[in-house]
Amino acid sequence: MPHDLILLGHGSGGALSHQLLDELVVPTLSGISQAGRDDAAVLDPVGGRLAFTTDCYVVDPPFFPGGSIGDLAVNGTVNDLAMMGARPLYLSTGLILEEGFSRDDLARILTAMRRAADAAGVAIVTGDTKVVPRGKADRIFITTSGVGVLDHGLTICGSGARPGDRVIINGTIGDHGIAVLAAREGLELSSDVTSDSAPLNDLVAELLKEGDAIHVLRDPTRGGVATTLKEIALQSKLGIAIREDQLPVSREVGAVCAILGLDPLYVANEGKLLAVVAPEAAERVLERVRNHPLGRESAVIGEVTDKNEGRVTMETVVGGMRAVEMLAGEQLPRIC
């Protein structure tokens, strides 16, 4: 029997399942050699309101420049908790493996999950593994759920923007989407773009030192910055005006987007946040973000207005005005 492949029996619940869990999954994810055999993790009480979230990860390909589905699965859920102002504590994970998936690749992904969890200061405390027949899944799907605690009384949500607020982003946009696209399509022209996948909870903790000046936090993942800003404008029933010349876009991402006919405003990010903050605190917030390793290229990209309710407008680099709408469907590379 080949030892280097995942077989249907590894998800059967029987001896092979136990072997995979004991030898690989549990020690890698939790650092404990013996799997706990109980049906649920028991957590210590925490003092504060809880935030709870879940997400699914189906990225193709599972490995790409700057990361893998493993760190994405941890960072994505950590970031969703952080965007509510919560301090992430515990994660659960579900692994759905396609029969025939490489055991080495699984080990690499689990190691990436563990490293990301350690970096974010969260523990993966429970999980489940299933194997489906070949062709019924694309190599590996991961779900993670996360619990975090709110250590403060602030309410940070998408409807919290106020007229005059400034919109801050913590760095260049579109890196993750272009890195994955390049890996998926084998584009030689963009070999040096890497994913920005990163846990944002430490940066958020820094931001929360500004207290109630922080009104909205959102991570612009799928759909990109454009879609997230539009969501905030709709939820807050206000307008948002941004300036294209303030949007940080790396040269490489700008070039690939220009060639393929994509708009970086709609390309996914995995280590970026949009912060909507009170105008009087904007300079201080910007400085805090810029002093953080994940925010060196941060910028104020626009402001909230009481005009144009529910709309996002952009002053283009050449001074023209246009609307910014949500991503419709998927961005498709163009013919010419």
């Binding site: 283009t316 050449v318 001074g319 246009r322 010419c336």
Partner: peptide
């Protein structure tokens, strides 16, 4: 079509 897109994308009509 690439002109059409650029004209909208940069807000050329507003200029």
């Amino acid at each position: 079509g690439t002109h059409t897109m650029a004209i909208y994308q940069y807000g050329i009509r507003s200029l």
